[in-house]
């Protein structure tokens, strides 16, 4: 039971990251391979700000996503916007290259071994069936709140309506007088900021290291294949759900814990190739 609850922590990161990937893909038609690197940058930004300027965790939670999001905006304006007219594969390759550059530079500067980030909340919370470390509980709740807020922003607000419409038919939305290129830049910035926010939340749990996002993003790709990228709520549910599945596997058959998500992906491909929440094609 404890492992299951802890599985939700991983699920929280899967949900936040796959949500960002889905939002970016909808607007940019690009699978953002840089997502893992941007997750790492969020954690690093928090760690550096704490170490150098003494900025506390709670301020980093706001500042780091903004900083990393702004870097994302620059990358979009400099590089990504040049390839929207090309096949999706080029976006994948471009963002893969960007990830290599970013991760390589961080490794070059700070080495591959990680550094710990002190947990801002210590102690445990009694959930009745287990004592859960309070910070992990906070991560699950915060991630859930962030995911739901993102869902609300996209499905229920004016800006979200622009995003949904531009995902469907950018030409027409632009012909209505909306600056779609700016909307695309903004979307990328927000998606990247979301990855960085997940990174800040992860800093006290994982070691802050240049490669902390690499393996995670590969798992998140599997999550995205399982869930399909058509539905915001689908991404959230799939992310948390797979975290749970992973937690359960840790209980019943530990050696398979880090491969179980890929097995689920294989099964989904067999049974429902479009993904659990995806439309055909």
């Amino acid at each position: 039971m404890a492992q299951v609850a802890l599985g939700l922590v991983n699920g929280a990161f899967y949900a936040m990251l796959s949500l960002g990937l889905a939002v970016i893909f909808g607007m940019l038609n690009v699978i953002n391979f840089t997502h893992g690197a941007q997750f790492m940058m969020g954690a690093f930004a928090a760690w550096l700000m704490l170490g150098i300027l003494g900025v506390p965790f709670w301020a980093s939670l706001v500042l780091a996503p903004i900083i990393v999001g702004l870097i994302g905006v620059v990358l979009e304006k400099l590089l990504l916007k040049r390839i929207y007219h090309l096949d999706h594969l080029y976006g994948f390759l471009l963002t893969f290259g960007m990830a290599l550059i970013i991760e390589g530079m961080f490794q070059w500067k700070w080495g591959s071994s990680g550094a710990p980030y002190p947990a801002p909340i210590t102690g445990g919370t009694d959930l009745g069936f287990m004592i859960m470390p309070s910070y992990r509980l906070f991560v699950v709740v915060a991630a859930l709140a962030i995911c739901l807020a993102t869902w609300y922003g996209i499905e229920r607000t004016k800006l979200g309506a622009y995003l949904r419409a531009a995902t469907e038919n950018p030409t027409l939305v632009r012909a209505f007088g909306i600056n779609v290129p700016r909307l695309i830049t903004l979307t990328y910035g927000l998606g990247v900021g979301l990855a960085a926010l997940a990174g800040v939340l992860a800093a006290p749990i994982m070691q802050v290291s240049p490669l902390m996002g690499t393996n995670l993003v590969l798992v998140v790709f599997a999550v995205v294949v399982i869930g399909g990228m058509g539905s915001i709520m689908g991404s959230i549910v799939t992310g948390f759900g797979l975290g749970l599945v992973e937690g359960l596997t840790k209980v019943y058959y530990p050696p398979a814990a880090n491969t179980v998500i890929f097995v689920v992906m294989a099964i989904v491909l067999l049974v429902k190739p479009a993904g659990l929440f995806g439309q055909a094609k």
Partner: peptide
């Protein structure tokens, strides 16, 4: 737009 309801469609431009 299929992802927008009627009123959202009306208010979009």
């Amino acid at each position: 737009f299929s992802s927008l309801n009627v009123e959202e469609n009306l208010l979009l431009p």
